[in-house]
Amino acid sequence: MSGTLVIFKKELKGFYFNSTFWMICFLVSVVFSWVYPIQLNLFSQLLMNYVMQQGVPQNQLNIHYGVFLRQLSYLNLLLIFVVPALTMKLFAEEKKLRTFDLLLTSPVTSFQIVMGKYLAALGAVGGIVLLALLYPLATSTLATVNWGPLFIAFLGIFLVGGVYAAMNLFASSLTENSIVAYVASVIFNVSIWFVGIGTEVVDGERARKIFEHVSLSSHLSGLVEGTVRTNGLIFFLSIIVLFCFLAERVVESSRWR
């Protein structure tokens, strides 16, 4: 297990002691600093005028729905493109610079290599999610915030980030070209949202149920509304485990190829 820890520490340092990561954080915060106050402003106007407006959905009058969930959907959009930028070099760069030789000739297993790198990527994703969490935290000085659903919603988006990280780690392990890894990762991240679309085209009840269960959005929607369901958590974990396993196989394959 110590191998995992050594690689984890090194990669996490590689993220946090690197200007690229802070550049990404800066850009993310620029986007939020522009969008979030506008959202907040619109929400406050809506509250002031709602008596005069007819047919405003009830849940839009809640700050959780009116502001935080919108922010989360922007965060999700950003993560689709940001997580690949963080993870693309994890394996591709090592292969290109031949530092991969060092890892493969060190007394660590493929599993430890992948785990170390995955946990480090998770650490970096966590940093960005925390950065986004600062905005609701700042809002709590102006408004009453229901902390439970807020944290659960952010946990949900963090799990989605974890799914991206696992898929993108796998994409990075496939190639030694970082750009290819990036493009493949973005395609993975975008296409996982389209799996659930199957619900709308299949006829059978059973098939529809299956698509519902493998749809990322149906599991995420539970979490962002503040309800934790074990089947949702298991679903996220299964995807993460699946792609980490695939990445581990790719790393291992270089031993016998």
């Binding site: 110590s2 191998g3 050594v6 690689i7 090194k10 590689g14 690197n18 610079l97 031949r98 530092t99 991969f100 030789d101 060092l102 890892l103 000739t105 060190s106 007394p107 660590v108």
Partner: peptide
């Protein structure tokens, strides 16, 4: 692997690390 030190054709060094930190990392890895 515990008993072997290997220098491949291209030295497996991370360009963005300091020499000392790099060697510490390798030592921990080994």
């Amino acid at each position: 692997k515990k008993r072997i030190g290997y220098l491949p054709e291209i030295p497996p060094v991370y360009a963005d690390m300091y020499v000392q930190d790099y060697l510490r990392y390798v030592a921990a890895l080994k």
